[in-house]
Amino acid sequence: MEGLTDEEYFWEPVRDCWSIRPRGTSAAPVSEGPGAWTMDFASPDPVPAPVTTIAWRLAHIIVSCLGYRVGWYFGGQDVDSGTFAYAGTAGEALKQLDEMYGRWNAGVRELSDADLENPPTGGPERFPMENRVLHVNRELIHHGAEISLLRDLYRRQDGAVPHRI
């Protein structure tokens, strides 16, 4: 994520993207968040699902992938998509990511073999904790790869017409 700019963070590669937006500017069915910035959302998800910006994907990782589970499994401040203060800059989002990943990583490192074999004591999920750790790590890899692809596409916006065979 090194060098992520605000322009890249908010870049919309196609029309009707979901993103993090200043309060009151979203066209999405729902705008989540209590602060100056809100996250585009709908339930149920539209079909097809909208393309999402790097801002939206980082918020999803911070809140849904890490934040909920950090609160459920390791205690401390609960994180909720409706009450989370979404980042209005790339720098702020990366700080949120570092903080939440640090909390996740510290909690996972404290787990014993017995903890990993049993369902967590907190949260709604009843799979063994090792399954939950694997799931979160897959989510981080999956969404991190999507962000990397968006960064590649952002950097290659040169207006060139694709070569057709």
Rank of each mutant, 00 (worst) to 15 (best):
G75T: 04
R103Y: 01
L140V: 00
V30Q: 05
R156F: 06
Q96M: 10
Y154H: 11
I141Q: 05
V14W: 13
S19L: 03
G35L: 02
Y9I: 07
P50C: 10
L66A: 01
L58K: 02
T121C: 11
G76V: 00
A90F: 02
T53K: 10
L149A: 12
A160R: 05
W56K: 05
D158W: 08
S148C: 04
H142C: 05
I62V: 14
N137D: 07
W18F: 15
F127T: 15
E110Q: 15
P162E: 04
T83F: 09
A87D: 04
R151V: 00
T52W: 12
Y68P: 01
G102N: 04
Y101I: 00
N137G: 14
R132V: 15
A49P: 11
P13F: 06
S148R: 06
H60S: 08
R109K: 15
V47P: 10
M1C: 03
E92Q: 13
R155Q: 07
N131L: 15
N131K: 15
F74Q: 00
I141F: 12
M129C: 05
G159F: 05
A49E: 10
A145V: 09
G3E: 08
Q77W: 03
A36Y: 02
D78R: 11
I62F: 02
W18Q: 03
A27Q: 13
E139M: 11
